[in-house]
Computed example of a mutant assay.
Amino acid sequence: MRVLLSAAWSVASLVAVVVVVHHNEAWPAHLPAQIKGAAWEQGVDEQLQDAASMPQATPAVIEILTAGDDADPALRVDSNRVISMQRLEEIIAEAAESTGLDIDLIRAVVRTESDFRPSVVSSAGAVGLMQVRPVAAVDTASRMSGHKSEWAKRFAERDIADINHEDLLDPQVNVLLGSHYLAHLRERYSSYGEPMALWLALAAYNWGPGNVYRHITSNPHMNNLNDLRWLLNRRAPYETRAFIHRVLERSNMRLETA
């Protein structure tokens, strides 16, 4: 009887080891250990969504993106990737010049938010390449009252309730709005100095300025980057922490303390 129990226990232990190894191998190797642990706690399926699961392009965005003489006839219009990387790079360069943000930073945000897919619409109503929400579009455009661009005037003169997804799907307008919004957030936190201002701007871009104020900047003990990291790790959702990590890494702004 003891022999049978011992054999059964050995088999159970072996199965447990195989299961653990399987889970460990399922994680992408580039994710740091602390992010792996946080994602495991909150659910892998909810936190690590493959880009292929994003919605396909709608007829409205296909019409927007394929209009004009510069449209690439070779692009697949049944996919979200209906804008050439050359055109996207031109849009990003325009946004960088308009806002003063680094080109690599804007590109990293676009990649992280939408995987370069212009028709992505989140369940929270964030739209397009930089996942711009109507409220952010109106707020950003209103702050640019002196801006001569037609797109800024168009959004500044409208109510949030009147803006629909199609209004924010144009790649050029979307990236300009998102970049100006990010630049405004970075300026808002400029008194903290760099790189804290950038970290806070990215946190607010993803999580919302209200949440950053309530949970992060209102804390009297936040004096340096280590304090900020400590607060983010304990109070910000995994999605926000992962967003900051990926944008910094993809924009070559990864720091020793990141």
Score class of each variant (00 low, 15 high):
186 R>L: 07
137 A>K: 00
163 I>D: 05
211 N>V: 04
223 N>G: 14
142 S>E: 13
232 L>P: 03
164 N>R: 15
144 M>Y: 08
203 A>D: 05
173 V>L: 11
207 W>K: 00
235 R>V: 02
133 R>I: 14
146 G>N: 10
247 V>I: 13
167 D>F: 10
141 A>S: 12
128 G>N: 03
246 R>L: 11
127 V>C: 06
136 A>R: 06
201 A>L: 03
154 R>Q: 12
168 L>H: 04
156 A>L: 05
180 H>R: 12
223 N>Y: 14
153 K>P: 01
143 R>I: 05
219 N>T: 10
167 D>V: 10
134 P>A: 09
181 Y>R: 06
186 R>P: 12
213 Y>V: 15
225 L>V: 11
224 N>Y: 11
242 A>Q: 05
224 N>Q: 13
202 L>A: 12
180 H>D: 03
227 D>L: 02
221 H>E: 15
188 R>T: 13
234 R>F: 07
246 R>C: 00
150 E>C: 01
144 M>V: 05
191 S>Q: 14
142 S>I: 07
244 I>N: 04
141 A>R: 03
133 R>Q: 09
247 V>P: 02
216 I>E: 01
164 N>E: 14
126 A>H: 06
244 I>K: 09
209 P>F: 07
155 F>A: 01
180 H>T: 01
134 P>L: 07
145 S>P: 10
195 P>N: 08
140 T>M: 02
216 I>D: 04
207 W>V: 01
245 H>D: 11
162 D>G: 13
211 N>P: 05
130 M>K: 04
140 T>C: 00
131 Q>E: 09
175 V>H: 03
218 S>V: 07
224 N>M: 11
177 L>N: 00
236 A>L: 07
150 E>G: 10
177 L>Q: 00
157 E>R: 15
202 L>K: 01
150 E>N: 12
215 H>V: 01
185 L>R: 04
156 A>P: 09
165 H>W: 13
159 D>G: 15
232 L>I: 10
199 W>T: 06
235 R>Y: 04
130 M>I: 10
234 R>I: 04
198 L>W: 05
240 T>R: 00
202 L>T: 03
149 S>Y: 08
205 Y>V: 08
169 L>P: 04
149 S>K: 07
143 R>S: 13
205 Y>R: 01
220 P>F: 08
207 W>H: 06
125 G>C: 08
173 V>Y: 06
227 D>A: 09
126 A>Y: 03
217 T>N: 00
127 V>A: 09
240 T>Q: 02
139 D>E: 14
202 L>Y: 00
135 V>H: 15
189 Y>K: 02
176 L>E: 03
226 N>I: 11
169 L>Q: 13
190 S>T: 13
221 H>D: 15
136 A>H: 12
145 S>H: 14
219 N>I: 08
145 S>L: 13
213 Y>K: 15
185 L>S: 00
208 G>Q: 06
157 E>V: 12
200 L>H: 04
208 G>H: 06
164 N>T: 15
243 F>V: 08
148 K>Y: 10
